[in-house]
Amino acid sequence: MSDLLSLTRTERSAEDVVRSAGEILARYDHLTQDSGNISWLVRTEGADLFVKTAGTQAPPPAGAAAPYLDHAGRVQLLRSAVELARSVEHPALARLRSVLEAADGPVLIYERAPGELIGVPAAQRGDPTSPYRRFAAADAELRLTVFDQLLASHVALESAGWVACDLYDGCLMVDLSTGRLTLIDLDTYRRGTSTNDMGRVFGATRFMAPEEFELGAPLDARTTVFTLGRLLRHFGTGLTEELEHFCGGAAAAEVVDRATRPARAERFGTVGELAAAWRANRRSV
C-alpha cells in the first residue's frame, strides 16, 4: 500500500513522501495558484490521489503572487477542511481518504475527483474549448443536474453548521459527460454564523455577496444563499446573466433572482429554503 495511505506521521517532507508514493501526474504551486498551497495529483498502485498541503514556510519564489496567508494560516485552513470533510457526508463532496502529519505540516489525501475543473484563469474564459465555456453551453438538463447536486450538498453542509466562503467556479469539478459534480477546496468555509473580520473576505468577486466586502457585516446562511444563486445565474444563463435565458425556466429564474438580491432580508433565510423553492420550481427538460 502507498505510504500516502498507510502513514499517519512522518519526519519527511510532504513532497518526499508524495514522490516516493507513485507517478506525479501534476503539481500545483505558485505557477498555477496564489494561495501558497502546494498540491499534487499522484498515481499510486491502488488509485489516483489528490494531495494537498500548506506548502513551505519559505518566502514565495520571485514573481509569484503573494499568498493570502502565511504558512501557519494555511495550515489552520487545512485543518478546517479536515473538520468539514469529517462532519458531512455527501456524494458531491471530495472524499478525504486520510491525513498525514509531515515535517512541513498536514497532508490531506483525497480521492481523485472525476471530470474537469470549471473555473479557469480570466484569460481563458473566452476560449470556447475551456471547461468554463463548455459547461455554460452544455445541455440544460446536465446543468440543472449539477445545480441539483450543488444545492443538495449545501443543505447537508448547512445542517452541519457550515457557511460558504470562497465558493466559486474554481470549486466545481464536473464530469461533462454525466453531470456528476465534485466540490473541492472548501478550506475557507466557516463553522456557524460569524462576522466579517477582513473587510474583503476570500472569494471571487463575481460570486460574492455584498456583506463579504463589509467589515463587521454578518456572514451566515443568507451569504451562502447569495453565492449559490450567483453560480446558478452565471452558468444557467449561459454567462449572459439575463434571467430570461435561464435554463431552468421562468419560475426557477424567479428563485434565483430572490437568492441574489443585494438586500439580505429579501433573500431566502436558509439554504434549505432555497433548495425547497428550487425543487418546486425547477423545470424538467
Rank of each mutant, 00 (worst) to 15 (best):
L5V: 13
L78G: 13
G36Q: 06
R133G: 03
Y110C: 09
V18P: 12
F246E: 12
R19L: 13
V163N: 01
T182Q: 07
G36I: 07
G55R: 10
G248Q: 04
S284I: 09
L4H: 05
V42R: 08
T193Y: 00
D197Q: 11
V155Y: 03
E45T: 15
T188M: 00
L93P: 02
D127S: 05
R125K: 12
W278Q: 06
E212A: 03
V42T: 08
D175R: 01
Q76N: 07
A217K: 07
P60S: 09
R125S: 01
G199K: 03
D148C: 02
A265P: 08
R43G: 01
T195P: 01
G203D: 12
R143S: 10
S98Q: 11
P61N: 15
R233E: 12
R143Y: 02
E273I: 00
R200L: 13
H90W: 07
A136M: 13
A217H: 07
P59R: 02
N281M: 05
A94H: 12
A251R: 15
E266W: 00
L4W: 02
I109H: 01
A138G: 09
R79F: 04
L151A: 04
L4I: 14
T8Y: 04
V107T: 06
A21C: 10
V255I: 03
H90S: 14
L78A: 12
D187I: 03
D70K: 03
G249M: 05
G269Q: 10
A64W: 06
E212L: 04
T193N: 09
A252E: 10
L186T: 14
A85N: 15
D104L: 01
V88L: 00
M198V: 08
L183I: 08
A102C: 06
P262E: 13
A253V: 01
H30R: 09
A85P: 10
P60Q: 07
A136Y: 02
A85F: 00
S98A: 15
L274Q: 01
V99T: 06
A66W: 06
A280Y: 09
Y132G: 11
T129K: 12
T227W: 08
L25H: 08
S80D: 12
G248Y: 04
D16C: 00
V18Q: 11
A164E: 05
G272S: 05
G179F: 10
